[in-house]
C-alpha cells in the first residue's frame, strides 16, 4: 500500500486534484513573467493583506455554502459591524454581526424563507442601519480596531496573520467538530440529515451566526486598515466572497467545500487584482478580466471532476 500513499502525496497529483491551486500558481507565474516586481516581498505581503478581508468573509460563507445555503448579507454586515465598532467598541461590532447572522438563521430555519431572500433582506437592512448610524459620514476607528489593520512588526501585517488564524479555525470547524460534519450532511441531503437525528433548524441558526460573525471580523479588519468605518464600506464584497468559495471548489448545491479551497479562491482574486494593477490594466478592463478568470477557474474545476 505504501506505493499508493506515496503517489497520493506527490505534488503533481496534488495539483491535479486541486484545480484552484494549480490555477493560482499558473496565474502568479504569468504575472511574474510579465512584471517581475510582482515577486517583490513587500508586494506579496500586500497581496496577502488585500486577500485577508475577502478571505475571512469567505470562510464564513464556506460554512453556509457547504450547508447548501447562501449569504448575500455579509458585505452589509461587515459595514454595520465596523460602524458599530467605530461608534462604540470593536467587540460590540462582532456581537452585532453574529446577531444579524442569527436573525438570518431564524428567518431561514423557523420562518422557512429561502436563504437567498432572507439574506437579501438582511443585505438591505444592515446597509440601511449603517447609513442611519453613520449619518452618511465615515467615522474614525478606535485604537483597538486600528491595531487590527496594522503591522505587528515590520513585514508582519496583522491582517495576514488574522487571515491564517481564521483559516485554521475554519478548517477545524469543518473537519473536526460535529457542527462541521453536520454542515456537510445538511448540504448533501437535508432529509437524510433530519432522519439521522440532526436538528437541522438549530444547526442552521449556528451556521448563519458564524457567517455573520466572520463577516463582522472582516469588516473590522477592513476598517482597521483604512483607519475609519465608511457607510458604503464592503459594498459588493458578498459577491467576491461567494466567488472565492466557488473558485475554491465548493458546490453551490451544497455538501462540498473546504477551507483550503476558499483560501486559494480568495488569493486568486487578490493576485489577479494586484497583477492587473501592476500591469496597469485600466480599471474598466480589470472588471472584464476578473469575470473571465472566475469563469475559467470554475470551468477548470468542473472539467477536472469529469
Amino acid at each position: 500500500m505504501s506505493t499508493i500513499s506515496i503517489r497520493k502525496y506527490a505534488p503533481k497529483k496534488y495539483l491535479a486534484e486541486n484545480g484552484a491551486l494549480a490555477g493560482l500558481l499558473l496565474l502568479a507565474l504569468v504575472i511574474a513573467i510579465m512584471q517581475p516586481a510582482f515577486l517583490n516581498a513587500q508586494n506579496l505581503l500586500n497581496v496577502g493583506v488585500q486577500a485577508a478581508v475577502i478571505a475571512i468573509m469567505a470562510f464564513g460563507m464556506t460554512f453556509v455554502v457547504v450547508a447548501g445555503g447562501i449569504d448575500l448579507s455579509v458585505g452589509s454586515i461587515a459595514a454595520l459591524a465596523a460602524m458599530v465598532g467605530a461608534l462604540t467598541a470593536g467587540p460590540i461590532g462582532l456581537v452585532v454581526g453574529a446577531l444579524c447572522g442569527l436573525v438570518n438563521g431564524a428567518l431561514i430555519s423557523y420562518g422557512k424563507l429561502p436563504p437567498f431572500i432572507a439574506t437579501l433582506a438582511m443585505l438591505s437592512v444592515a446597509r440601511g442601519l449603517t447609513l442611519v448610524l453613520s449619518e452618511g459620514q465615515p467615522h474614525e476607528t478606535d485604537a483597538l480596531v486600528t491595531f487590527l489593520g496594522s503591522n505587528l512588526a515590520p513585514m508582519v501585517p496583522l491582517p495576514l496573520l488574522l487571515m491564517l488564524a481564521f483559516f485554521g479555525i475554519t478548517g477545524l470547524i469543518l473537519t473536526r467538530t460535529n457542527l462541521g460534519r453536520r454542515m456537510y450532511a445538511i448540504g448533501g441531503n437535508e432529509e437524510a440529515a433530519k432522519l439521522s437525528g440532526i436538528d437541522v433548524r438549530k444547526q442552521k441558526l449556528w451556521i448563519y451566526a458564524l457567517s455573520g460573525l466572520f463577516a463582522a471580523a472582516a469588516g473590522l479588519v477592513l476598517a482597521g486598515r483604512l483607519g475609519s468605518a465608511g457607510p458604503q464600506a464592503a459594498a459588493g464584497y458578498e459577491l467576491d466572497a461567494i466567488a472565492a468559495v466557488v473558485i475554491g471548489g465548493a458546490s453551490l448545491s451544497g455538501g462540498v467545500g473546504r477551507a483550503t479551497g476558499t483560501l486559494v479562491g480568495a488569493l486568486v482574486l487578490a493576485v489577479l487584482r494586484n497583477g492587473l494593477n501592476l500591469l496597469q490594466v485600466p480599471p474598466f478592463w480589470q472588471q472584464v478580466v476578473i469575470g473571465v478568470v472566475i469563469a475559467l477557474a470554475a470551468l477548470l474545476d468542473s472539467l477536472r471532476r469529469r
Binding site: 460534519r181 456537510y184 448533501g188 441531503n189 437524510a192 432522519l195 440532526i198
Partner: peptide, 28 residues
C-alpha cells in the same frame, strides 16, 4: 431508529464518504 425506504432521497448523503454516512447518527 428508522432505516427509511428511499436510500437516495432519505437515507444517504451522496456527496459524503461511506465513513461519514455510517457515523451520521453517532456523530458524537
Amino acid at each position: 431508529g428508522l432505516v427509511p425506504e428511499d436510500r437516495k432521497g432519505q437515507g444517504l448523503v451522496l456527496t459524503a464518504t461511506v465513513g461519514q454516512n455510517l457515523e451520521l447518527v453517532t456523530l458524537h
